[in-house]
Design a protein around this nucleic acid. Structure first.
Lengths: 215, 215
DNA sequence: GAGATCTCTGGACACTTGTCAAGATTTTCT
DNA sequence: AGAAAATCTTGACAAGTGTCCAGAGATCTC
């Protein structure tokens, strides 16, 4: 490789890095705006106002609005899916796993409520606009696998066989979380504690004998 | 009451009737448009184009866009909630109820997929816009009660006590249906049959001993 | 049938939207 | 330092938005 080639490579890589970095930065502002206003009410100018730049720059880094939002979904995915894996690997008992899971659900509902609201909004949008579908389905599959890891590990630690499949387990806890999110964002004071209790009550339903939570 | 009063009353009642009837008609066009395009992409002119009138008439019957859509949600509610009650009252065995329920889920997923897509879209919108919240929450509560009637009747017919509460039962089947809707609308060929099988598998989870579906 | 009232049309308005491009500014390289 | 390239700003554009209104048409009352 000649010196010229090295330079070109170095330059282009640096450019790519800065380019990619700024894309992430702008996507961050976009995600914040989307999570505050929702997809239907988010404009490019509003996104730019939540960043350090003016609205024109968005078309320098993204071809159009759809590419920006697709990029946002993809970036959001990388932050979101891995969040529970520490719980799975660190738990030593079924009860410990159950409580760690319930605690994590409550924590993310309290701290990231707006992000989850955005996720359900985007998943609904994907039913109308084909552009996001691929990424949304991929993200959804990742979430399902995350739930499945928890449920199967919980069954392992319990020594009991499973009564549900992966889609059923995901449907249960996704529905439960969505229920809690709706209540939490509409001011229900017991939404967080209810979610905790219900997660603990529903996790044993995935096993053949729910002896873990003898009430 | 004088004859003049009677006349006034008759006239105004007739006006109210025609007025209310036209509101329903326009709301019908609005629901159709919303279910096709989604909330974010539906404009008043598009709604009018799906009706027999021009766009100006919408502001004759509705104060603004929010009132129109709120009215749509309320009208949609009356059509939607009562749909499963016949199944509950006509079933004589737990298994019959379970199959009737699963069949109904599949049927409405196949026939009314766009309406359900609209419902999940509106429920997401309610998390952002406070205007629809009251009606959406009311509709959601109605759906939860509908599920609860099925689950409790199923427990009665089975002679087994319940393991879940009403929110948990609703979360389970709402999550299950949403999962199926996403797959069905994105072209998954087994979405319908999967929903049927999973509903039959999950209903026994609401009881203390899932002996009804010995697989 | 005349007049009053209800209903509807079509156009106008102020505003926002996504997109684009010309030019200013900054950064990078020699 | 000075040229070249990358980056950012600003303003403009056409299209679409919700809203309003003057007036045409329809319907009803007397």
């Amino acid at each position: 490789m000649t010196r010229a080639d090295e330079r070109v490579d170095r330059v282009s890589r640096r450019q790519v890095d800065k380019f990619a970095e700024r894309r992430r930065e702008l996507a961050e502002a976009a995600i914040q705006t989307l999570s505050e206003l929702g997809y239907a009410r988010t404009s490019l100018r509003e996104i730019a106002q939540n960043s350090a730049f003016s609205h024109g720059v968005l078309h320098y880094y993204f071809a159009d609005k759809i590419e920006l939002i697709t990029y946002c979904v993809r970036q959001y995915k990388t932050q979101c899916v891995l969040r529970y894996d520490e719980i799975v690997t660190s738990a030593r008992t079924a009860d410990g796993l159950a409580h760690g899971f319930a605690d994590a659900l409550v924590a993310t509902l309290r701290e990231d409520a707006y992000l989850h609201r955005l996720w359900y909004d985007m998943r609904s949008q994907a039913l109308f606009e084909e552009s996001f579908r691929a990424d949304v389905l991929e993200l959804d599959a990742g979430l399902e696998q995350m739930i499945w890891r928890i449920v199967t590990r919980h069954a392992e630690l319990s020594g009991a066989p499973l009564t549900v499949t992966s889609p059923e387990a995901y449907a249960m806890f996704d529905g439960l979380f969505q229920y809690a999110l709706l209540r939490h964002l509409t001011g229900a004071p017991t939404a967080l504690t209810d979610l905790h209790a219900r997660a603990l009550r529903m996790l044993p339903l995935t096993l053949c004998r729910p002896e873990g939570s003898a009430s």
